[in-house]
Design a protein around this nucleic acid. Structure first.
Lengths: 189, 189, 189, 189
DNA sequence: GATGAATGAGCGTTCATTCAT
DNA sequence: CATGAATGAACGCTCATTCAT
């Protein structure tokens, strides 16, 4: 994979994360990347393709850091949950509650009319719920309770909804409170 | 208020709910309402103004049916919670899990660059959390537990996140499961 | 002539004088006159017709006050010239150098593509030059000098050009200086 | 500067000179230049920007040919005046008295509502009066008379007013007569 | 590989005028 | 007489994409 191509993806990712896909114009990307139109269309067949690559880029980070790095580690399930929630909080704290979740944003912005984006986002949520569900399973050994998949889905939904409200209020405290509830949801499941 | 104006708002509301604000072109609205450009601008000063009216339109329904009709009724808090969750489920079932929550959609689509939309959405969430929190207070009399406001916020986040995932998966079952968790979140708070 | 019609002309005249013909929208006129579209089109067949009436309205004032009231009076030619120049200065002083000459404005704004406007403006200038020329003739009895018509035309041109520069600079002093030169131009002709 | 850009400016200049700024539609320019909308907006950010460039284009010609080429030359003041007046006459003769003065036209069409245009026109008039005043000063050494600046302003006003009347009458003779008066105004100052 | 000039369908908006009541 | 809803052509402008060099 060309290095320039990766650089373009990274630059576009930052723009799309903070401004949204439609609202990030190709000219914004070209300017930020300091390249011409010809170079862009040499690396990508369309803005749409770049968008999918950007989604992949975010997915790779999320997969490496959270799904693999945290949820698939050798630590105790409790520690894994803790670290995941901590990761979420830190991620949005560093962006000052401004960006929202890129997957949720894309889900709502483009899912409806673009099956390719929709599919990718669905895979992210599915995999997240799946991995989380396995961790919950570890915790739940021998205990009664709801289906771990459903709880995992609930935790993801709670986090996504929390991020949405946090972004709308521009207040990181919303997310902190939500994560506390996520902990309890897991504990009482 | 003119009847035609109301009709345009209603038609636009349906389009915006299912396609999003930016992706609903003025020409879509004109075609659906069978009117000309001039007539549109006779009733509205801009697409933006229409968008705000559409948000008001949804808020009025939500306020009348849920915030006032259900959460402010004389029934038991348990019944009110039940009816609210039921309303949410029915609302999205009737739309076949296709639209998502109009407030959440707008929140993510426009919050960032349009303060007017952002403010209206914030008010909806705030009022919903506030009313729900009062109901939770009624239920919690004498009991220990988390702050009702935070739990209410969590319930709203859970529902919003659940609707987002439901829409992305195009599967109403997601929402059913999420609402079950919402019940438990309230019960164990 | 209907009184309402006259009222509309007067209101439109004020708007057109200060904002120009094209830049005065029909809706501005309707609002200022507090009438509906139907009433307007009852009295006038088009904006264009109103424009011509407005030009007539200004011409009537100019004719009554200057061409007849001053230039055709029984006073000495010197007094008549003096009063005419004084009238010009007072007219623009009261409007704070903001409007320019309505005839000059229309001449430049519409002459090119609208023969009807062009013709009316031409008549105003012709009649002004003509009347002024007669006064100059009275003064010149027995003296040598340029043709009075040409001097009259020069005085009118000087005044119009002076008003143009005055408006552009938004400075009434320009006009004062110009009128001094007009006096000398007449004296030395 | 791109050659195409210059070509567009030149074509637009001819249209705007003869039809006015507002009355020259973008589509007229595109058609005359045989280009598409996209190309236009590749070179200019707006019609407004083009308008200012067109004004600059005319100013450069005027500055090079008249302000510098004639008024700042080493010839006698009398010759300079003569050549300037001759330039004005030839300029309008070649355009068959149809266009008027572009600076005067813009002054009256846009001065009021567009400060950028107004400022540029003001600078043209100021510089013209200034340069002319210096020439008049040369002529006046040792003689009594009015302030040269005021006379210069009067000459410019006379010319501008004369062009206006010439355009309205579509008759170059008006301008010839006016220029004769301008000569006398200078001689008797 | 790389440039940026060129394309053109589509956007939201304006506004004089017409027409049903 | 009067209303104001309705029309629709035209406007300036956007922007992803294509193409000649």
């Amino acid at each position: 994979m060309s290095q320039k191509r990766q650089e373009i993806i990274k630059i576009a990712a930052a723009l799309i994360e903070s401004k949204g896909y439609e609202n990030t114009k190709l000219s914004d990307i070209l300017e930020a990347a300091a390249i011409g139109k010809g170079q862009f269309y040499h690396y990508f067949s369309s803005k749409h393709e770049l968008g999918l690559e950007v989604l992949d880029y975010f997915y790779e980070i999320f997969d490496r850091e959270v799904l693999e790095g945290i949820l698939s580690s050798k630590k105790s399930p409790e520690a894994k949950i803790n670290e995941m929630l901590q990761w979420v909080l830190e991620n949005h704290t560093s962006k000052q509650a401004r960006c929202g979740c890129i997957f949720g944003n894309i889900a709502l912005e483009l899912s409806e009319h673009d099956p390719a984006f929709s599919k990718k986002v669905r895979e992210v949520f599915d995999k997240w719920i799946d991995k989380l569900s396995i961790v919950l399973e570890e915790m739940a050994r021998g205990k009664e309770g709801s289906s771990c998949v459903e709880v995992a889905q609930g935790v993801v939904a709670l986090i996504e909804g929390g991020i949405m409200i946090m972004k709308n209020k521009q207040d990181i405290k919303v997310l902190e409170d939500i994560l506390t509830l996520a902990r309890r949801m897991i504990a009482t499941s």
